[in-house]
Design a protein around this nucleic acid. Structure first.
Lengths: 148, 148
DNA sequence: GTTCAACCTCGACCATGCTGGAGGTCAAGC
DNA sequence: GCTTGACCTCCAGCATGGTCGAGGTTGAAC
């Protein structure tokens, strides 16, 4: 069993984030008699998954959903993890496609110089997004990782 | 001159957002004797720019920087706007490239099944990002627009 | 001159993904 | 047993991009 400090050091994930992830149900720990957290070694792999998934652009909620697909009754195998990683690829492919379409439209718009409200194709992509009502906008975070 | 309500209706941008943009210096207005905002028609084009730039994934701060490149002394021409739009394309290209690289590494990782901390290539992309110290993580928002 | 919608400011709050500090406890070494 | 660092909880705060409401004013129509 590992202390929170050991997990933080080995995983590179700050202890503040570890507690945060636990609050969100992404990782679990048991407590000592003195109420301190103790982690199983397998949490390291789980953290690797979480951090990588974030790189791919998933939110913690997405990650939570993905982790929920892991078997409860046994230690996840390599192929369990692989299956999840493969789903990232699908997600990434979709994001790349979306950016491509946006870029293509943008290229067209530079050509026509329209850039006017409502008439421009760019303005009218997915406009239901803009009208989802109150609350925070539906954004997906993306790490800037590797932007050349 | 247009009232804030007229601008909101014509642009599709909520009046709350219009005031927010004004606070951030993205748009400007003059005031009536009774302290109400009045906008020039050109604000509509500016708003089109802002909303589209956000779709492309630019932050409002990025947009602020871009708008600062417009001439103060004259009404921006079509080619002024075109020049800015063209810079979005560069930005988009960079984002697409970054996602591509990420996907390639991910594909490799699925193959090797490593997904282990520190040893996995995916884990080690841009790790300086993770160590930028306190504060919010350096994220770039992306609209989900058009995700198939 | 009165009514009423549209406007004003200011501050709180939503959500995400955390960090940092205050104030207190635990555990291990000496 | 005492010190000291590692741990605990809880709450405030940062940054982005806004929304919403309270409490008050304006302006245009009737």
């Amino acid at each position: 069993m590992l202390t929170i400090g050991q997990v933080a050091e080995r995983s590179g994930v700050p202890h503040t984030a570890l507690r945060f992830y636990e609050d969100r149900g992404l990782i679990a720990s048991v407590r000592t008699a003195g109420n301190q957290r103790r982690y199983q070694r397998s949490v390291l792999r789980r953290l690797a998954f979480i951090r990588t998934a974030q790189r791919v652009g998933l939110t913690l909620e997405d990650v939570h959903g993905a982790l929920a697909q892991l078997p409860d009754n046994r230690t996840p195998t390599k192929s369990d993890w692989e299956r999840l990683s493969r789903s990232w690829k699908t997600e990434l492919d979709a994001r790349i496609d979306a950016l491509y379409r946006l870029r293509d439209r943008l290229t067209g718009c530079i050509g026509c110089g329209c850039l006017s409200l409502r008439s421009c194709a760019l303005q009218n992509i997915d406009d239901e997004q803009a009208s989802h009502g109150p609350g925070a906008p539906k954004l997906k975070p993306v790490m800037e990782g590797g932007t050349a």
